[in-house]
Amino acid sequence: MTEEEVRQLACELLSDIAPDTDPSALSGKEDIREALDIDSMDFLNFVIALNKRTGVAIPEEDYPELFTMDDIVAYVQR
């Protein structure tokens, strides 16, 4: 996936989870949990969806590598 595709996918999944927010307006370095006010259940749902849509295995110890948009892009492209 290209960087832009990953970013778009992440925005789509996050706006499903936090429908009252605009994830595409986030800077690459903001903590999505703070910026979108998502809790651990929301974050787990994001991981589930990201895993399903990209096929990338995401072990639990890697969760901290998915807290910003830039990190999500880097992680999926790795």
Partner: peptide
């Protein structure tokens, strides 16, 4: 919890709560 979740896909993992 870490042991339990390690071998499981995200949809089968438990939250700490």
């Amino acid at each position: 919890l870490e042991d339990y979740n390690r071998e499981r896909p995200p949809e089968e993992r438990l939250l700490p709560a």
